[in-house]
Every structure is written in structure tokens, then in C-alpha cells.
Design a protein around this nucleic acid. Structure first.
Lengths: 239, 239
DNA sequence: TCGCTGATGTATGGATCCAATATCAATGCA
DNA sequence: TGCATTGATATTGGATCCATACATCAGCGA
């Protein structure tokens, strides 16, 4: 079952006007976040156009969209590539997260519904039950972003998403090589955060969250090998 | 003196490949930041194309670029418009600035050159010498952004610029109606900040800066009339 | 008089074609 | 043998044309 979206618009829907670029963007976003396209790698318009069964116009739009999301870097007349970040840049992105995400949480918390809280608890239980790296990344991301889902102010919400996107690759490399020990720490910190959220305690939530991010940043700084031409990791078979 | 750039590519250069979209983006950015296009106003592709003497393709690219900069809002099949922000959204943007800009300053400060410091001092002197609203906005923006010019990490630098862009219109409305009294406060705070920068004191710089932004936010919150269908202000004739 | 429905105009989204630029390999020269 | 130059090729940027969706308003009926 190759889940590839590679078949051109053979028997697909009628392609409702104004959806092609979004479809292409989804395709590329998934590929980049999954690590199928590694940082530093070029992304050729024609290739993507063929892979998605569209012309190059929606591809260009999608590339610009993804540039805004921090997943693509565009250089005039030279094309697009996935940004390659230095340790210092990743560190600074984590510092930005330390300051911004507590704000997003404070903005979001009052708007989280009981259903949201249930889903959060369920997610955390799933994280603790399953120790597969790929799944951990997915669930951890879902957990945190759900935490911010009550924040409806665009610049803040989109900025937080962008910061997560930019460092997704390095998170994967980091988690892959740090083993299950680190997941326990993360889970403990998630539990504290979750508890604060359930108590609707903004102050505690902000404190636990910034501490969570700060400790992750410090831990990451102790693993420079994450940046040593990190493996693409798309078929993350346990070594 | 219509400063319009409306003459099509009559005697303009040969348009070196890959510059049209940038030219269009500059045109629109200036128009929006100057208030020539007010928040909530639509931006039609064909109009811009004619005004800049290009086809609609570079216009689309420019609109997406500006969307990433927070100056344009795109809705599928409905077109582009300048975002209209609520008081709460502006307030939250200022809170983001409170947290992000000190970080940008800390990152930038060690890389500022002696020439930068001279230019900063010169700018501040110009601000104090000239009390015209339009000029104040321009110089104040230049002052702060120059302060961050040593920060070469893209997500941070671009985010700061985006936050400034998003609220430019409301800053104009605010400064227009708050009179020269407020400028004195701003100047005093700028002097403190400038002094900390010259001493290369990161901690003081961060503290003065976040205080500067916080006080501006609080002051702005006391002037809800800024949001009462604020005048376009492009020909800000004293009323 | 008010609300609904359909037709038409207008604006955006997408495809194809052409121009300009970058990339790269082959070749000639020092 | 190493390097610069030069051509061919691949790739991006822009223009024009077509398809589709939204907006407006006239016409009709209750």
C-alpha cells in the first residue's frame, strides 16, 4: 500500500478550485516533517509537480507557503531547499519557544474545553504506553499543539507552529539517540503540565512549560552529534 | 505629488530575471506601511499588476510573501486584504514583542559595530530634533530594527519584523493622537536603552527594552479610540 | 415590501509556453 | 595536471490564456 500521493489526477476528485496548492503543500509538509526530505536537500519544482499531478504553479505557491512555515528556504533563481540549521540556530529557536509557548498556553488555557482535556490525557497515556520513536514524536507534537489549540490569535499560533516545524528534524535525531530514559523525564514533565492545565493554573502551566522546554534545550546542547549529518531517519529502523 | 510608482515598465530597466516579484512586494509593503492601504481593505491582483507594470504572477508571489510578513491576509478564492486587528490581538502582539525583542537584542548586541552605535545615536538625536508624527514613526522603527541588526538568525529576525509590520498602522494611529508628551517618554526610554547598548550590558538592555514595550502596550490599551476605524492617515494633514 | 433564485460580471486559481539564469561537463591553455 | 572558459542542459521566473468560484443585482413570487 504505498501511501504515495504520486498518482496523477487519474481518478481523483474534481479538484475543487483553489485546493491544488494546499494539496501540494500538505504533500511536501508531510515529506519534510517525516524526514523523507532531509535538511539541505533541494526541492525541484518539476519533480514535485509530477509527483502531485499538478503543474508548477501550485508548487510555487506551496513552496512560498512552506517558506512562511519555516520548512522551506527559497533563493532567487536557485530554487528551494530544506533549511539546514546550525546548533546555535536550533538553540536560539528553543529559547524563542521558551518565551513564546508559555504565552500561547496562557492565551489558550481559558478556552480549552473539557473534551480537549480528555484528549490531552488520552494522548499522554498513549505516549506512555508506546515507546516507538516515530510515534513518540507524533504524539508529543500533537500533545503540545493541542495545548495551544485554544489560542486563536494567528501571529502567535502560526509562530509556535513554525518553531516546531523548523526543528522537527533535530527533535527526531535527538529522540532517536537519547533512548527511553529521556522519554521518562518528558512524561513526568508532561504530567505536571497536564495537572496544571486541568487546574486551570496559568502560572504553574507557564512555569512548567518553560522549564520543560529549557531542560530539553540544555539536554539537546549536550548532544552535538545530533547535527553530524544526522541520518534521514525516514525508515528509522532501530540500530 | 503623487508618489505613485504607477508608470508601467516604460523606461525602466530590463527587469533582471527574478526581480519583478520583489519589486511588487516593495511597492505593496510601502503602501501598506504608509497607510495608503488601510486595514480591512481589499488588494486586487489585477490592479496591482497594472500599477506595477507586470503580470499577475509576480503579484501573487508578492502577496504570499507579504502574507508571511503579516501585512496581507489571503483567503482562498476570495482574495487578499490587509488584516484588521482587534484590540486584543494588538495587545497580544505587544506581549509577544515584550518576550521576543529582548532575546533579539541579546543575540544582536555582541555583533553591533561601532558604526552601528554611531548610527543609533544619530538616529536618536534626529528623533528628538524632529517632532513630526510621520517622521517619528519612521525613525523610531529604524532605531529599534537597527538595534536588532546584529541578529542573523532568520526565524527570530523575521518574526520581530513581522510583529512590527502587523501593528504599524495602530502605532501610527496611536502616535498621532497621543501628542508630543508621549514622545518625551519614549525618548527618555530610548536614551536608557542606548546607554545600555553602548555599555554592552545585555541584562540592562533586555530589562529596559521589555519595560519600554510593556509601558507602550499599557498606554495603548488606554486609548481604545485607536481602533475606532482609525483614519487612513496617508495624507496625515493636521485636522 | 421583503426574501429568494438565477444569470451575469468580476476576480482568483491553474496550465502552458517562453525567457533568463544557474549548473555542470567538456575543452583548451598555462 | 590544474584551472579558467565556454558551451549545453536543467531549472527557475514571468506572461498569457482558460477554468472555476464568488458577488452582485435583476426578476419573480409570496
Amino acid at each position: 500500500m504505498s501511501s504515495s500521493v504520486a498518482d496523477p489526477a487519474a481518478s481523483r476528485g474534481p479538484d475543487p478550485h483553489g485546493a491544488a496548492s494546499a494539496r501540494v503543500a500538505d504533500h511536501l509538509r508531510t515529506a519534510i516533517l517525516d524526514g523523507a526530505i532531509a535538511p539541505g536537500e533541494r526541492v525541484r519544482q518539476e519533480e514535485v509537480a509530477q509527483a502531485t499531478g499538478s503543474s508548477r504553479i501550485p508548487v510555487r505557491e506551496a513552496l512560498h507557503l512552506l517558506e512562511a512555515e519555516g520548512l522551506i528556504e527559497n533563493e532567487p533563481n536557485k530554487g528551494a531547499r530544506v533549511p539546514l540549521l546550525s546548533p546555535h540556530e536550533v538553540d536560539l529557536i528553543y529559547r524563542m519557544r521558551e518565551r513564546l509557548e508559555p504565552l500561547a498556553l496562557a492565551e489558550s488555557l481559558p478556552h480549552l474545553t473539557a473534551a480537549d482535556l480528555e484528549r490531552l490525557t488520552r494522548l499522554q497515556e498513549d505516549i506512555e504506553a508506546d515507546s516507538d520513536v516515530r510515534r513518540f514524536l507524533e504524539l508529543d507534537r500533537a500533545f503540545h499543539l493541542l495545548t495551544y489549540s485554544g489560542c486563536h490569535v494567528d501571529p502567535l499560533a502560526s509562530m509556535v507552529t513554525r518553531l516546531w516545524n523548523s526543528t522537527q528534524h533535530y527533535r527526531r535525531a535527538f529522540v532517536s539517540m537519547s533512548g527511553p530514559g529521556r522519554m521518562w523525564v518528558v512524561n513526568a514533565e508532561h504530567r505536571l503540565l497536564l495537572d496544571a492545565i486541568e487546574r486551570r493554573d496559568v502560572e504553574d502551566g507557564e512555569r512548567f512549560l518553560s522549564g520543560h522546554i529549557r531542560r530539553t534545550r540544555i539536554e539537546l546542547a549536550r548532544h552535538p552529534e545530533v547535527f553530524d549529518r544526522a541520518p534521514t531517519g525516514t525508515h528509522g529502523s532501530p540500530g
